[in-house]
Amino acid sequence: MPSLIVEPLNTQEFIMDRDDRKRNKNIGKNFMCRLQGMFSHSSSSESRLTLEDTQQWSQSLDRLLESKYGLATFRNFLKSEYSDENIEFWLTCEDYKKIKSSFRMSSRAKKIYEQFVKAESPKEINIDYHTREQIKRSVKSPSLHCFDEAQKMVYGLMERDSYPRFLRSDIYRTLLENLSADAAKG
């Protein structure tokens, strides 16, 4: 019978793991307080961050983005990964679609192009050359839909890449753990 070799437990690693868990719990609590503080002035029905709401974020990217807390948490996560240009572009496009004035639309379309679409722009999004050129042409006489294709691409990138990483992230897992612990306390 083969012998089982057991390596000695490294006490320092155990202490660091316990300390890391404590630190993550504190970070999660601090983040929860900051999130709720951001929206404390709000009078909407979604006034408190709950475990159920937070669990629903894992159902789809849409569910996450529909929640003010989910959106704020996801934005914070993307900033930590230096890829917040995607959510910023997506949100900017959502606001752009609400514009009624053709003058404002034209002005705003040019700003969006300069900020997100133009090659080498400050917050350049990852889209293909064909889409970039199509937007460049359409911005000259913009419509409400001139960014739709790029917005779909960016959403797809977030859904396939950033969103799954977010669900596995320390920030999301710690938030769930803290809310579960609070719910268990009653």
Rank of each mutant, 00 (worst) to 15 (best):
6 V>L: 15
6 V>N: 08
6 V>D: 06
7 E>V: 04
9 L>S: 05
9 L>N: 06
10 N>L: 07
11 T>S: 02
11 T>K: 01
12 Q>E: 02
14 F>V: 11
15 I>A: 04
16 M>Q: 07
17 D>A: 12
18 R>K: 14
18 R>N: 07
19 D>M: 04
19 D>Y: 03
20 D>A: 08
21 R>F: 04
22 K>H: 10
22 K>D: 08
22 K>W: 10
23 R>P: 00
24 N>A: 12
24 N>Y: 11
25 K>E: 13
25 K>D: 09
27 I>Y: 09
27 I>Q: 10
29 K>D: 09
31 F>M: 06
33 C>W: 05
33 C>G: 03
36 Q>R: 08
36 Q>L: 05
36 Q>K: 08
36 Q>P: 00
36 Q>S: 06
37 G>V: 02
38 M>P: 00
38 M>T: 03
39 F>S: 00
40 S>W: 11
41 H>R: 12
41 H>D: 13
41 H>W: 12
41 H>V: 07
42 S>Q: 05
43 S>M: 03
43 S>W: 01
47 S>P: 00
48 R>V: 15
49 L>P: 00
50 T>V: 11
50 T>Y: 08
53 D>W: 02
55 Q>M: 15
55 Q>V: 12
56 Q>D: 13
59 Q>G: 13
59 Q>F: 11
60 S>R: 14
60 S>E: 14
63 R>N: 14
63 R>T: 11
70 G>N: 11
70 G>I: 13
71 L>I: 07
71 L>E: 10
72 A>P: 03
73 T>S: 15
73 T>D: 04
74 F>V: 08
75 R>I: 05
76 N>L: 14
76 N>Y: 15
78 L>P: 00
81 E>T: 09
82 Y>K: 09
83 S>Y: 06
86 N>E: 10
87 I>P: 00
88 E>H: 06
91 L>M: 15
91 L>C: 13
91 L>V: 12
94 E>N: 10
95 D>E: 15
98 K>A: 13
99 I>Q: 05
99 I>N: 05
99 I>D: 04
100 K>Q: 15
102 S>I: 10
102 S>N: 07
103 F>M: 10
103 F>S: 11
107 S>M: 11
108 R>N: 09
109 A>N: 02
110 K>S: 04
110 K>T: 03
111 K>L: 08
112 I>Y: 02
112 I>D: 03
114 E>S: 10
114 E>T: 06
116 F>N: 02
116 F>M: 06
120 E>G: 09
121 S>V: 02
122 P>V: 06
124 E>C: 12
124 E>W: 07
125 I>W: 11
127 I>F: 08
128 D>P: 01
128 D>G: 05
129 Y>G: 03
129 Y>C: 09
131 T>M: 08
133 E>P: 00
135 I>T: 04
135 I>W: 02
136 K>G: 02
136 K>T: 07
136 K>L: 12
136 K>Y: 10
136 K>H: 12
137 R>Q: 15
139 V>F: 05
